[in-house]
Amino acid sequence: MIPPRFHGVALAAGSAAGAVALAILGLWCAGFAPLAVITTWCAGAFGNGTRIALSLQEAGPLLLTGLATALAFRCGVLNVGGEGQFLAGAALFTAAALVLPVVGFALPLALGLGAAAGAAWAAIAAGLARWRGVPVVLSTILLNIIAVAVLGALVEGPLRDPATTAPQSALVADVFHLPVLVAGTRLHLGIVLAFVLAGVVWLVHERTSLGFEAKVIGLNPAAALRVGMPVAARQMQLLVASGAIAGLAGAAQVAGVTHFLSAATTSYGYAGIVVALLGRLHPVGIAAAALFMGLLDTGGRACEKQLGVPHELGDVVKGVMVLGVLIAAAWAARRSAAAHQGPADG
């Protein structure tokens, strides 16, 4: 059988496979030949170097927003505001890139400002939770909706490119572009930074007292309080840190991929929740989940273009995947608890 430490992997992989199988079955019923869907998807997701680079390009922001979500979730803070924090980061990065002088350190400075904007957007929720008792899950969602509106107002107003009528900003100068790794794609340095950050998060989780405290607080806040851990303060700090990572993701997306800001939102923030849960809140799992989701999206786009498969089906797959992994995990946890407890014990 599967060794216990790989149970989480098995659960996630099983759910992903089940969701994909369900989608293919559904498409079969709708008249799409399963083999054609599978081959088109594979060719689109990793058929050649360019497609692999495109999938990785897609995985980058997902890895960052997934890490951001997990950082907060792990200590029991339900930050579902990655979307708003992502947009805040993208907006302030673009604004900074449009006004800052073109000097050597301008790119890191602008990226830092993007992260700070994400942190600040999360800090609103942190403050409301700490001092007014507003549930983070609600405030962060409401802040997402407000962020979308503010973004729209910005690209129609102060940040709008005077040269076009479309609601979008001007292109940022070349100095503010993250270097491209694979010619012909926009796979940029950000993916490397994202993996490095995943490593840092792993180190913090596994090797520092802060990571240990976060874990205890997430598992049992009452016990953490009793042994003297600063529960509320830690939770708020991690919420702000989570916002900073999501903000960085938004800034890196403008710096590396779009090079301008538009009112069209991409929901990388919401997708980050899926990545975090599918990755079981573990940095390695999150990296794997982000790569899988990148492949799923890029292959899905190829299926849409060549076969006419609706791309919205990708969201159904994600939803089924998450529900599958949640239900399977709850069931497995209960089964192992029952096994440890033994039969006929109350």
């Binding site: 709708a30 339900l78 579902v80 899950v137 919401y270 929740i273 899926v274 849960l277 609706p310 919205e312 089906l313 990708g314 969201d315 159904v316 797959v317 994600k318 939803g319 089924v320 998450v322 529900l323 949640l326 239900i327 995990a329 709850a330 069931w331 209960r334």
Partner: peptide, 27 residues
Amino acid sequence: YARVDQIVAGMAVNLLAFGAAGTIWHA
């Protein structure tokens, strides 16, 4: 019945409904 965390399951349901509604609308 499966006793999954309600908030997390709710977010998953939102995503599922969003995808399903989009797919049906597409069709």
